[in-house]
Design a protein around this nucleic acid. Structure first.
Lengths: 150, 150
DNA sequence: TCCAATAAGTTGCAAAATGCAACCTATCTG
DNA sequence: CAGATAGGTTGCATTTTGCAACTTATTGGA
């Protein structure tokens, strides 16, 4: 299930997709939960240990992410564990996570400061992600604008 | 100036670029301020009117975004106005904003629900943004992983 | 079988962030 | 020089977040 039906509607800006996305995952923890899910975390305890988030807040965020259709919760074969997995919509956040990560790599670390990097199966660093126009050339913010729809 | 030197260091996860980026702009308003800056907003009043944000919070966010090297503040020719403009680092967030926007378009609206779209100078909608591997094929979260650096 | 450990929460209370409305100061305009 | 405009600041109420202790269910081992 997609987000669509969730959250009756107290959107920051009802027609803007950026605002909606921020309303759903624009807090201190949600994106980091999603990041860790992409990196293999599946249980409450795993998320808790990796993030150092307060347990009640983690409970709340996991519940909301499930409600929004970003995570799926199921009982593990284990019996006492639960398993949280990214839905298709959750996996589709990969692009956004990569974009935020690459910006951080470029602008939020000192030149000599160590930081983790994202690599492919062959251990090669990912190419930089940039919006392209229809012609395939990089597109800047000035060369684009928001069009309101009816 | 880049973020690099700002913020003494109470990072959520000191080595993760995603966490750093979220620490800097992962709140309810910063990304929307940046979105509006990309859409042409430059003054305190403009941001306030577009966002409906509380004035003291806007003051605080603008101050932080300037401190982080994302916005630049200058006196307008006007004399009583101030002008906030995206720095190079701020403009470089365009990729992330587009990624979040496109995810929202795909997953946060009902099929028939109207929402704004991002178009280029010729009025054509932007192509979907996706991480690619070195070979140019789309890369999924499973086909990549985080490598810790010393 | 029973008991300690593990997993996933819940609850109560303190602290921090956010929001609202009124107030303040400087500049600009008529 | 008076009113309007721009960009704040301040005090207080509300909401969100965080911490620590407590609860329930399951599980593996003595």
């Amino acid at each position: 299930m997609d987000v669509t039906l969730a959250a009756g509607g107290a959107w920051t800006d009802p027609a803007c997709p950026v605002a909606r996305t921020v309303d759903l995952i624009g807090d201190r923890w949600s994106l980091l939960i999603i990041r860790d899910a992409m990196d293999g975390a599946t249980t409450f305890t795993e998320f808790h240990q990796r993030l150092g988030i307060a347990r009640n807040i983690l409970t709340d965020r996991l519940r909301k992410l499930v409600e929004y259709g970003i995570l799926d919760k199921s009982a593990a074969t284990d019996g006492r564990r639960h398993t949280y997995r990214l839905t298709e919509a959750g996996q589709d956040l990969f692009t956004a996570v990569v974009a935020l990560r690459q910006w951080g790599e470029r602008h939020a670390f000192a030149p000599d400061e160590p930081h983790s990097i994202l690599v492919d199966d062959q251990g090669r660093e990912l190419p930089e992600l940039h919006p392209l126009g229809q012609d395939g050339a990089p597109l800047s913010a000035e060369a684009s604008h928001v069009r309101k729809t009816a």
